[in-house]
Nucleic acid binder design. Structure first.
Length: 314
DNA sequence: ATGTCCACTGGAAGTGGA
């Protein structure tokens, strides 16, 4: 299963780009952010025609999230992050697909900082951390995917210099992200590329795409069960290079949904193999001992012969 | 501070958000 997150930056104006990407990469599950469209403006028919079922939570002009599933209908399990009934932003939607629980989130940008928007970002983050803990405790295989609007470390940006005052790099933002991970989530892209810079966003300014001046802010967090299923991860960079592109590129993981069952089998096979090897080792050792014994006997025989020869010489 | 793009309002170009 290929599961992707993509900040589409306006689903109506990017619909051709979205459909082209779905056609070429055929992701099985897609988390979309920044629809920038009300519920009624979601292009349901076109997405269905492309072979995807969808659920969405829109909003006029800003925010908006959706989950698509190829040849399937996502089963909605939640819309809206718990913890603040007065929060009107459409930033969280969650569904079950193929036995996985998938949370699609669009974390507040938080600029300018400091200020009420940054406060809202941190408050939203705290709500996410609290809810993520509940998801972990649920025992389900869970993925939390989306635009986190956090550059986790200075390694996740081309050069932090001009972004030092930006909400995406603030120590408070990073501390929240680190605290979330510490609950037991795997940052899929960072685990897949431990020593490489990976970017998912290049803003429209100053030819940042052309210069590969990017940031890594779109993340797929996997709980333990799902992390064990991960086989690959990456970024569909070509999407960012297309005309009229979103400023983000689709970011994805490939999961082996059979991995758990297979792992159990593999472990059994390994145990048998280990036993066989052990038997072989013992056999090899025994043979070696015999050879040594034979050699020793030979040496002894030679020695005996020599002694016998000396004796007769004397 | 700047840079670019989207969507909305209102019926053009300005504004807010990112």
């Amino acid at each position: 299963m290929k599961l992707a997150t993509f900040n589409i930056n306006g689903i109506r104006s990017r619909l051709p780009a979205l459909l082209a990407w779905l056609e070429r990469e055929a992701p099985d599950v897609v988390c979309l952010q920044e629809l920038k469209a009300p519920d009624a403006g979601f292009p349901e028919a076109e997405i269905n025609r492309a072979g995807y079922g969808a659920i969405w939570h829109g909003q006029t002009s800003w925010n908006g999230v959706a989950i698509l599933a190829k040849d399937a209908q996502p089963v909605e399990t939640r819309r809206g992050l718990p913890g603040d009934p007065d929060d009107t932003h459409s930033r969280y939607i969650e569904a079950a697909v193929e036995g996985l629980l998938i949370g699609c989130l669009y974390l507040p940008n938080g600029n300018p900082q400091p200020g009420p928007k940054f406060d809202y970002k941190l408050a939203w983050f705290e709500r996410l951390i609290a809810y993520a803990k509940k998801l972990l405790d649920s025992g389900h295989p869970v993925v939390l995917a989306g635009d986190y609007n956090v550059v986790p470390t200075d390694f996740d940006i081309y050069n932090p210099r001009s972004w030092l005052k930006d909400a995406l790099l603030q120590p408070e933002s990073r501390e929240c992200y680190a605290r979330l991970l510490k609950q037991g989530w795997t940052d899929a892209l960072r685990v897949r590329f431990p020593d490489e810079q990976v970017f998912t966003f290049w803003d429209y300014f100053r030819q940042h795409w052309q210069r590969n001046s990017g940031l890594r802010i779109d993340h797929l967090l996997l709980n333990g069960q799902v992390a064990a299923m991960m086989r690959d991860a990456g970024v569909d960079r070509w999407v960012r290079g297309e005309p009229h592109a979103s400023d983000h590129a689709p970011t994805w993981v490939v999961l082996d949904l059979e991995a758990r069952a297979v792992n159990v089998k593999k472990t059994a096979v390994k145990k048998t193999a280990v036993k066989k090897t052990a038997v072989k080792k013992t056999a090899v050792k025994k043979t070696a001992v015999k050879k040594t014994a034979v050699k020793k006997t030979a040496v002894k025989k030679t020695a005996v012969k020599k002694t016998a020869a000396r004796r007769s010489a004397a």
